[in-house]
């Protein structure tokens, strides 16, 4: 019982992170029809920036978090402006290779800037772990859950209530029509990139205290986030949340009860299963291109 609870706690914590990463994938896909294979690298940038700002430069928690998200979102927008917008024939195969290229580039850049070492930093609240029925819950996990909740509510308000959010949905539904009614399409794509990579940075900054951050952490996180997004239904906000927690919990249970070697495999097995059996995901928002 105590064991199960412990696995559940770690599953929920990881799941919340996957959910935030999945949100980034999903919101970018729903507004630009694009999957950014470099998304995980922006998570890595978030984590390492957070470490550098708070430990290296002595920023306190909130400013460090704020600037981290700002810097990474700016990097995402620069990436969109320089690479994505210059593509003359934006077919999926071309965009896949470009974003994969960007992910390799960013990982290499991360290695040059931060080296091959792994960094850790203290938790946002310096409190002892909470004991619930014999299982330990880190205060950072509560932070992460709070952040996920805030982001979900925030995004919901953004899409439902603000003009920009509605315009972004309009672009996703019909580019041409959106252009005709005067929505600045290019600006919307830029903004979507900024928001999506900013979400990646939030995920990265939130896990910096509970993991070892290094230049190569992004790929796996990105892939798992994508897997979570697919699991719930790519393009759906609630799908990303659901997929994230589901993946986190399944992974933790797999590690706990089957084998630790299974940890990374769980996500990919689930990914293939979803792609083969139900590409629209559990909630099923997106129409998946299957010939």
């Amino acid at each position: 019982m105590q064991e199960i609870l412990q696995y559940l706690f770690s599953g929920i914590t990881n799941g919340a992170i996957y959910a935030v990463i999945a949100l980034g994938f999903s919101m970018l896909y729903s507004s630009t029809d694009l999957i950014n294979f470099a998304h995980g690298e922006f998570v890595m940038l978030g984590a390492l920036c957070m470490v550098s700002l708070s430990l290296g430069m002595g920023f306190s928690l909130l400013p460090a978090f704020f600037f981290t998200v700002l810097i990474v979102a700016a990097a995402g927008m620069i990436f969109e402006r320089l690479a994505i917008r210059s593509v003359r024939h934006p077919e999926p195969i071309v965009l896949i290779i470009i974003t994969v290229g960007a992910s390799i580039f960013l990982r290499g850049l991360g290695m040059l800037v931060w080296g091959k070492d792994a960094y850790s930093m203290p938790q946002f609240w310096d409190l002892p772990p909470i004991d619930i029925a014999g299982a330990r819950l880190l205060p950072q996990s509560i932070w992460i859950l709070l952040i996920v909740t805030a982001l979900t509510v925030g995004l919901q308000i953004f899409y439902r209530k603000t003009l920009t959010g509605k315009a972004m949905i309009a672009c996703a539904v019909n580019k041409k029509a959106a252009w005709i009614v005067g929505i600045p399409f290019k600006w919307m794509v830029l903004l979507a990139f900024g928001l999506a990579t900013g979400l990646g940075a939030v995920a990265g900054a939130s896990i910096a205290p509970i993991t070892m951050s290094s230049y190569d952490m992004g790929t796996m996180l990105g892939l798992k986030g994508f897997c979570a997004a697919m699991l719930g239904g790519l393009g759906s906000l609630w799908g990303a949340i659901l997929g994230g927690f589901l993946l986190g919990i399944l992974e933790a249970m797999g590690v706990g009860f089957v084998s630790s070697g299974l940890k990374d495999a769980t996500a990919f097995l689930l990914l293939l299963l979803v792609l083969y059996v139900r590409p629209q995901g559990i909630i099923g928002a997106a129409d998946v291109k299957r010939f």
Partner: peptide, 16 residues
């Protein structure tokens, strides 16, 4: 699968 999904599917297979 096609497009991005094919990319992700083959990537997942390679990882496994």
């Amino acid at each position: 699968l096609s497009g991005y999904y094919l990319g992700m599917g083959t990537l997942g297979f390679g990882m496994i």
